[in-house]
């Protein structure tokens, strides 16, 4: 019981609910099922990305190239769809995940094989992948009229009352929950983050685990590339620009420690939902959308302060018994 009261996820969930209810007092209907499901659907892509980022952060790395990977993969599948509308969309989705996986594997290989810090590697690939979009598309956009109807519909089709986009997020989240809590690989992500040295002695290949994390975040970014292009019906160089830090922000708000080893699937999902609820609440209560950025910034700062409180007292005990000074 005390564990539940102390859990970050519960407090974060309550905060999200409180924001939704507070908004509902100003705008009736905000907390209605239909609107909440709409917000969930709008946040689905961010939730999937936050899960991928969480895996990487757990292993003491960071993936700043996710948004660029998403945009590049999205552009590739959009171009393929525009050129060959006959290719079935599920195949394109698999292709998106595969392309994303390769881009993620490149990050992972550089971190694993060459030991370059992840922040440097992904800072580099962030610009490389973004630039590659321009090269393959020749600076062109892919517009709605070039995409096949199926390509656009495969994020919108209703299934059991929810758009299928929401279901992708639900299924992936469930899969991640099983992966993180029920498999050896999931536990090794945590082990590597908590103590890499001990992990080696426990027989875990640290570099390989980090590589796997990058592959996962890459594949999810790639899959989200399709989702993004299909949902917003535009493929361009500017897709999701600057979004990499929003993904990190969702993780941080969700209580995932940037030092590695700490974080849960529920936390990542709630962190993303928090940003989603705040973003859709602002216009409803007549606050200019220009406030959005400052508010999410303040939320990040607050979240780190709250999360760090427990382990704030660093330092070490050097005198075992303290004696009062005379």
């Amino acid at each position: 019981m005390m564990g539940l009261v102390r859990s970050r996820e519960l407090w974060l969930a309550l905060t999200v609910a409180a924001i939704a209810l507070a908004t509902a007092t100003r705008a009736p209907g905000f907390a209605g099922a239909e609107n909440l499901l709409g917000i969930f659907n709008n946040t689905a892509i961010l939730m999937i990305l936050a899960l991928g980022q969480m895996t990487v952060i757990l292993t003491r790395c960071i993936d700043l190239s996710m948004a660029s990977n998403l945009a590049l993969t999205g552009m590739i599948v959009a171009l393929v769809n525009a050129a060959h509308p006959a290719i079935p969309v599920p195949l394109l989705m698999a292709m998106a995940a595969l392309v994303g996986l390769c881009l993620g594997a490149l990050n992972g290989a550089l971190v694993w094989r060459l030991g370059i810090p992840a922040i440097v590697v992904t800072l580099g690939t962030l610009t490389i992948y973004r630039g590659a979009i321009f090269l393959i598309a020749g600076g062109q956009w892919v517009n709605a009229d070039q995409m096949s109807p199926d390509f656009i519909q495969y994020t919108r089709l209703p299934f059991l009352g929810l758009p299928v986009l929401s279901w992708y997020a639900i299924v992936i989240a469930a899969g991640f929950f099983l992966l993180m809590t029920r498999t050896a690989l999931g536990r090794s992500f945590y082990a590597v983050g908590v103590n890499p040295t001990a992990s080696v002695y426990a027989g875990i290949d640290v570099g390989r685990t980090q590589f796997t994390a990058f592959c996962l975040s890459g594949a999810l970014s790639g899959f989200c590339g399709y989702l993004w292009v299909s949902r917003y019906v535009i493929g361009s160089v500017e897709v999701a620009r600057g979004y990499e830090l929003t993904i990190v922000a969702a993780c941080v708000i969700g209580g995932i420690s940037i030092a590695g080893g700490v974080g849960t699937v529920a936390g990542a999902l709630l962190g993303a939902l928090f940003l989603g609820v705040v973003n859709s609440a602002l216009p409803v209560i007549n606050i200019s959308p220009f406030w959005q950025m400052a508010i999410s910034g303040a939320a990040i700062i607050l979240a780190v302060i709250l999360n760090a409180r427990s382990d704030r007292r660093g330092g070490r005990l050097i005198l075992r018994t303290a004696e009062p000074a005379q």
Partner: peptide, 23 residues
Amino acid sequence: RLALPSIVVTIGTMSFFRGISYI
């Protein structure tokens, strides 16, 4: 003062400072 990791703090202030500009 609060012993927070600088990468996260400054991702937060990055949104916060520019956010004030936008406001």
